[in-house]
Write a protein that binds this DNA or RNA. Structure first.
Lengths: 333, 333
DNA sequence: TATAATTGCACAATCGATTGTGCAATTTAC
DNA sequence: GTAAATTGCACAATCGATTGTGCAATTATA
């Protein structure tokens, strides 16, 4: 059923029908009697306007593109959920793209979404390249989680530096000197800022902290696993590992278990990212919880401000340190 | 940049430009020289056709609606990922809707997606109501995970009966008589089939199995937690709990830990659904792994068959039982 | 009663692509 | 050299909505 058919059935012009159905009957002086007839007919026929046609005419799709590196990572899955629900409240739908942390796929996703004339973009970029992102000046965009310093694209992220500093200091306070850090994707903002926080803490406590050790290069279970195996085969093994996301932590635990070491006695562990099961592990896992819901909400409201032509300021939200049982007080070596 | 502007710049008709850019230059006898000029101009101007206009003209959006009860549940997040990547290969994009396991939101999502003229629908329904789903006869649909018996909507699901039967038999074999089952959403197909598998096993081994006990009514951590507390405060507590999804299992573990009992000595646990961290728990958690990727792939290819007008047969895929350490051999009572 | 103001609605253009058909210009056939 | 066939491209309609403007019919004003 199209508006034309509806108009024919009512013996009116499509103009009148459209104006009633878009609530403009007052503005265009459609009589209440006519308006009522239109509404009645529309409901009995279950008429719903063709959104494609509207989009074309109105030059607006009420669609937001959401680009995510890995929707199977619970961090992003939760983010996606908040974003979707928040956008729905504002009458937008989301076109989802998973980039598998590949810049190529991200570039492709971007141009596909632009071709579909999304009204806005919410992007958790891979974070290694940014040129394709700044090329788009046409549609408003807000970055989530990973961003680019000085590139003038608004973003919302966790205070990664703060979180990492806090976690590392905690380890040093507990007597750890040799703390290894397993990185995510190098060169991406969260990773670099976490590294900076880690390094700063190591430096601030340099009388006690031994040396800086960075390994790994991916936000994956596999990287956590391999890097941990590597670390634990070193002549001088670290007494604590700082895993820069939940997947790395998972891989690390797997390796530690396989090697037969015990957390926290043989080795301590802290994860950046919180997961519901962390408290159930034995021992429970000390973690830095990112304010996921706040990030999602903020990203959406920032995007709307940009859509409304307002200026926005980037948001950096504080994470929360959750102390549990995966860190010893007295590391052996 | 529109095709019209491009045509003006080339001093040609939009017809010719369109035909070249859609690869129909042969069919409509556009000279190679002209075609080459068009292509060159298109690339220098970075021309990309307005998909909205194409969609309207072609009556096809190359968009699939994906309706999911809870994208933050790793089961569905993984599913969504497979589906998204698989659809992208076939040049479709996905409009995502999260229904929070609420039928109302599902109905709303459905009509929004239909209004947007999606070419097809992949729905993991809440599963309690189906009328709104069968009302849609216009666009092809495939159900995932939860389905409706005899309602003639094609689906792909795990063999829940089989999985539950296997898990329950395993518990009985290990000497458990009093096995409680914490349900997900009652009345939904996976839940009912798992229950049937559980009951059948209990019945088949009735000399040894004691009685059937069903509690709970949600696929949530909270339900797992509350139901477990309830079970463990019974005069005659079960020796094993069968949790009907990963979230329930998580809640159950939380409750068990809080009460101070030990798995598996005090109580055994099996989860329907596998998660990467299950093997890292102490003890590691015995689980039934659903063939997630296969489900996603199958759903997509089934949808395409429907789109191509073929007949499809429902797919019921076998899960895999993964024995770990969360079940004792000799339950005490 | 004649004129002005208001009411109530429809015509037709528009958004940006695609496509059936028609018509010169060129080439081929005889 | 003329008719027929082929080549190369453009006109205009179409998809389904929205909207500036215009024009009767009705009501108000003087």
């Amino acid at each position: 059923m199209t508006i034309k058919e509806l108009a024919t059935a009512l013996n009116m012009s499509t103009t009148t029908v459209s104006r009633v159905l878009t609530g403009q009957e007052k503005k265009y002086r459609i009589s209440e009697k006519t308006a009522e007839r239109v509404r009645a007919m529309a409901t009995t026929h279950h008429f719903a306007p063709n959104q494609i046609a509207r989009n074309l005419r109105l030059q607006k799709t009420n669609t937001i593109g959401l680009i995510i590196p890995d929707i199977s990572n619970p961090f992003f899955a939760n983010l996606a959920r908040t974003v979707e629900l928040e956008l729905r409240k504002r009458n937008k739908m989301v076109l989802l793209c998973d980039t598998k942390d590949e810049t190529t796929l991200e570039e492709e996703s971007l141009s596909l979404l632009l071709g579909r004339k999304v009204d806005g973009l919410l992007v958790a970029p891979v974070g290694k390249k940014w040129k394709h992102l700044v090329q788009n000046t046409a549609v408003p965009m807000v970055l989530i989680d990973r961003y680019f310093e000085g590139k003038d694209i608004p973003f919302v992220a966790t205070d990664n530096y703060y979180g990492a500093y806090q976690a590392t200091s905690f380890l040093i306070d507990r007597g750890h000197h040799n703390i290894a850090c397993i990185q995510g994707i190098r060169g991406t903002s969260p990773n670099e800022n976490r590294i900076l926080g880690y390094q700063k803490a190591m430096h601030d406590y340099k009388e006690t902290a031994k040396h800086i050790q960075l390994v790994g290069n991916d936000y994956s279970i596999e990287n956590g696993y391999q890097s941990t195996k590597e670390l634990l085969s070193l002549p001088e093994t670290p007494t604590a590992i700082f895993a820069l996301n939940n997947q790395i932590a998972l891989g690390a635990m797997k390796a530690i278990k396989e090697i037969g070491l015990k957390i926290p006695n043989d080795i301590s562990l802290i994860a950046f990212d919180e997961q519901p099961y962390f408290e159930l592990l034995s021992p429970s896992l000390t973690a830095i919880k990112q304010p996921l819901e706040a990030i999602g909400r903020t990203a959406v409201s920032m995007l709307f401000e940009v859509l409304e032509g307002k200026n926005v300021t980037n948001a950096i939200l504080k994470p929360m340190f959750i102390e549990r049982d995966s860190v010893t007080k007295n590391p052996s070596p």
